[in-house]
């Protein structure tokens, strides 16, 4: 894929804080029009990457382009086309939600002051905050704050949205709304880069996935490509374990082993139909046959490591 087709591209992007590499030589490729799920546990380097993409911090090494323009040189032209949510919402506590958006709009030299009011209201409407627009930000709940931050990224028409953990602090209903919002933005033609430490929250809307672990990009591609990386296992229940194992090995199934009253193995590219046919053909009675493909979730855990340990 040529760089021109990529909304976000990085090459060897690295950021060291002291001696520790928070992000270590990653090559992101977010195709134009994609909904890219940027996954990884807390502390795996997602936010640092996003900060580098947006020009907030300078990488130690490597380069990055946003909408075809190198950053940070192209920031003035590119960033007005990029809506972003970085590491949670941040607003002036003693201003209302509407006044906070007005302030951000005032800072944008591309924004037309005459349409500010209607654009701000439309953005508030889109995130369901219009009724609470006059309330002071400090009185907002975490979910409302998160919505306001998403609303701020929608003040202007955008070609790219970079949303860092947009579902943080939202209840299941809010999470679903954000998902459908992401879907509708993508349907309008925008590219969306959405990060999350929870696969389940973004899986359904993503066309592409990138998985971070401890500063490395351990997997990247379309959802189908990532899924195909999943190694299926077969589990055969039979009365003739030895004969079954011989047949399976003869077919090219690898890692064949007896587990209790079952025979397990890795079928590789072999079709399950052929395996069963061969077993029956050889006179092995098949009591049960299961092909186990690990879920995306299992894959994610395998790639990033389990548990609550934060990479540090």
């Amino acid at each position: 894929m040529s760089p021109a087709d990529l909304a976000v591209a990085t090459s060897g992007l690295t950021k060291r804080f002291g001696t520790r590499a928070a992000v270590d030589g990653i090559d992101l490729a977010v195709p134009t029009g994609a909904v890219y799920g940027f996954l990884g546990p807390n502390g795996s380097g997602k936010t640092t990457t996003i900060r580098m993409l947006l020009g907030l911090i300078e990488p130690t090494a490597g380069s990055r382009t946003l909408l075809g323009q190198p950053m940070p040189a192209g920031a003035g032209e590119t960033l007005p086309r990029v809506g972003s949510l970085v590491e949670g919402p941040a607003f002036h506590p003693y201003l209302s939600g509407r006044a906070n958006l007005a302030r951000l709009d005032a800072a944008d030299r591309y924004a037309d002051p005459w349409s500010a009011r209607s654009r701000i209201d439309a953005a508030l409407e889109r995130v369901g905050l219009l009724a609470a627009a006059g309330k002071k930000y400090r009185a907002y709940s975490l979910g409302m704050r998160q919505r306001l931050a998403i609303g701020a990224s929608l003040l202007m028409p955008r070609d790219l949205l970079v949303l860092d953990e947009p579902t943080n602090g939202l209840d299941p209903q809010g999470t679903r709304e954000v998902r459908s919002l992401v879907g509708s933005l993508a349907a309008d033609g925008a590219t969306v880069l959405v990060s999350s430490h929870l696969l389940t929250e973004v899986e359904q809307v993503c066309t592409h996935l990138g998985v971070m672990s401890d500063g490395h990009l351990v997997a990247q591609g379309t959802v189908a490509e990532i899924r195909s990386g999943a190694v299926a296992t077969i589990r055969l229940q039979t009365g003739e374990l030895d004969a079954a194992a011989t047949v399976l090995t003869g077919l090219g199934v690898t890692n064949v082993q007896r587990v209790g009253l079952e025979v397990h193995g890795l079928p590789g590219d072999l079709e399950p139909e052929r395996i069963v046919a061969a077993l029956v053909g050889a006179g092995v009675g098949v009591r049960g046959f299961v092909v186990d493909a690990p879920s995306l979730e299992d894959l994610f855990v395998t790639m990033t490591g389990e548990g609550f340990d934060v990479s540090g």
């Binding site: 029009g33 032209e77 800072a107 002051p113 202007m156 070609d159 309008d188 033609g189």
Partner: peptide, 25 residues
């Protein structure tokens, strides 16, 4: 019409020029 614009810009549309001097900020 204005609300319809909000959210995303269809790819290929040209960005308007920024105002050279703005006292809004």
């Amino acid at each position: 019409v204005e609300q319809g614009e909000v959210g995303t810009r269809h790819t290929g549309s040209t960005a308007t020029r920024p105002r050279a001097v703005s006292t809004r900020l």
